[in-house]
Design a protein around this nucleic acid. Structure first.
Lengths: 356, 356
DNA sequence: AACTCGCTCGATAACGTTTACGGAAACAAT
DNA sequence: ATTGTTTCCGTAAACGTTATCGAGCGAGTT
């Protein structure tokens, strides 16, 4: 024998199907068949086996089962972090749909780092999931695109799907299911709402060149300005990530630099809006009396600060990602590309600008 | 041959170590050794192998590896839901620590249902994780205790650890690492703070008999009342779960029933506080001018609504859970039981009661 | 009575790794 | 030149499960 049976270093061992078989006085094949329910067994044998399973508290070894080729029931999801409400809700959607389709769900986090994301995809690939769902928002340079594209092909070769969730396709020939939001349309609506209320100096918080979501939103912002023939002032676009403390930091810095040269704020997401709002309040400015504000997401902080914002169906995004991947696995064809709609939710954070 | 090689139903196949070996002109053992770095190989062979790996874009099959007995690098975490900020932060802590110890992390959700939690533990058990971390807050009846206790023993038998995170031990003889908060102490401090400000009629939002966290907090609430010799009125304890909309519902119902008979609110957590606050505002009552309020958690909503609350180190809870499990796996001995401290964070939601 | 089914169930070959064991070179020492 | 010592690498046996094949055995058909 090459090494101790069923062994790990600490000398512990799992109950195996063989022990169940011995105890029940049948063969391993019979136990396997009965447990998988794939075959008609005699009622007497069946109850003998079930009793042995109970007594030994047996659970099948998932790895052996997977190796043997049958089970293919896992879905991997990779997000920036689970403490971001947006990712949490998308992950929740993935979980829910995966559970409904009785799949196990594996979550990995990247912290928004492209390198770690690539490594995580490789890591997930080892487990042969049915789908790898990428939810993060990373800076995609050419190197990244090339490697991720290679991984997408490798995934496709083993019958697994790469799903790009909330981000645009990698390229025309990269096999990936894509499901994203109408970020540009939402940002266009949000900015237009402020413009219709007479605001012309609108601060954009959360510019982040290279990050697709941020890029798409700022594009909507610029488009709306152009459509309303309001001059675009690059100085009104402030760089920052999509977190609460970043919103606070950006607004603090802006206010420290001099008197506010804007009447409204469009924040890249609700988190930023919440942080910026806190900075405004600490500076003695009120929302919406002194400064109007619109956010993006419509997640929990929005209701608490009475924020007008753009709603996106976060959980639905996750559910759709799973559903499309599974459907595509069954039906084949070219990978689908779906865009989910967004819409403005009116609350009390916007007032018409006082003229004269 | 029993069935098609390397097969799944759709006829796709993975690159195996054998193909790498053939391409490199060496044996599979050599490839395995080189990839695991467990053995000195000749530089020439090494580069041949690495090139073949590159060209074939080979990644090892995790299941085969696990079956073979070496890898033991996965940690399972089971939570109620990932969209609850508290669980999200704990999960984040688990993820971070697991990543630092280079473990894969698997998340499962239960929706707070005891039955689903038990099923999820069984499901995770199939994968032989190093530890199963239970973070949820479920109603523990005798049936539940008995089954979970059995699972704990089964887990221990295969060298895996059950970790109870944020909840009390199952029993003295159940092998489980326990790491929890000082919920009672925190609630005592929160209630005392309100009492010191002259409040005597304090509404408690979020009673939930049988749920350990809720029970521990309400115990602190009652203890504080007793310590300050303030009569305890059971009618001031309102039943409800720990979600935002529940806080809203509870407060709405209370206000609909008649004029407020309280001057302060102690909410089971910040989410409840945020919901209750919204209901108060819709009813024309201001916080803290008309009603003082204290929460529990110190998570994002707290800062936005300027809520005085009890801080607990959420991420640290998750990190500690992983760390203790891994340490115990190395060192053995009786499973540790740790209690993490909490403290009051003063913001602007509490005012002294106006007397006379 | 011989034969053919149909129904259960047992023996066994895979699945893709890792690792103990042993063999074959290469090199140093006598 | 022979032996002893390394160094490197190939053979093959596990790990625990599932699926194929075929054996045994009653019952039904000629």
């Amino acid at each position: 024998m090459a090494r101790k049976a069923n062994g790990s270093a600490d000398g512990t061992r799992h109950t195996t199907i063989r022990e169940v078989a011995e105890r029940a006085g049948v063969s391993v094949a019979t136990v396997s068949r009965i447990l998988s329910g794939s075959y008609p067994a005699a009622p007497a044998t069946r109850s003998k086996v079930m009793r042995a399973v109970e007594e030994l508290d047996y659970v099948a070894n998932h790895h052996a089962r997977a190796l043997s080729g049958t089970t293919r029931k896992s879905i991997a999801i990779i997000v920036n972090s689970v403490i971001s409400p947006h990712y949490a809700h998308v992950a929740q959607g993935v979980q829910t749909q995966a559970a409904e389709d009785s799949r196990l769900c594996q979550i990995g986090t990247t912290g928004g780092d492209a390198e770690r994301e690539l490594a995580m995809v490789q890591f997930m690939r080892e487990q042969h999931p049915e789908a790898v769902i990428l939810v993060g928002n990373v800076a995609a340079d050419d190197e990244y695109r090339a490697r991720m594209s290679r991984y997408a092909h490798a995934l496709a070769a083993i019958g697994s799907r790469l799903v790009l969730c909330g981000r645009p396709p990698l390229g025309p020939d990269v096999p990936a299911v894509v499901v994203e939001y109408d970020n540009t349309g939402g940002a266009f609506a949000a900015t237009s709402h402020l413009l219709s209320n007479g605001h012309k100096r609108i601060l954009y918080l959360g510019r982040r060149p290279g990050y697709t979501t941020a890029d798409a939103r700022i594009e909507g912002y610029r488009d709306a300005l152009a459509a309303h023939r309001v001059p675009h002032d690059p100085d009104l676009e402030v760089d920052g990530t999509f977190e609460r403390f970043e919103g606070y930091r950006m607004m603090k810095a802006r206010l420290a630099a001099g008197a506010p040269d804007f009447t409204a704020v469009f924040a890249g997401n609700d988190q930023i809006a919440a942080g910026a709002r806190q900075a405004l309040i600490e500076h003695g400015l009120r929302v919406p009396e002194d400064v109007s504000m619109v956010g993006f997401d419509d997640l929990p902080p929005a209701a608490d600060i009475d924020l007008t914002t753009v709603y996106q169906p976060h959980e639905e995004l996750g559910r759709t990602a799973v559903r499309l991947a599974l459907e595509h696995a069954r039906q084949g064809g070219p990978p689908p590309h779906t865009v989910l709609g967004t819409h403005l939710v009116l609350r009390g954070s916007v007032r018409p600008v006082v003229t004269g």
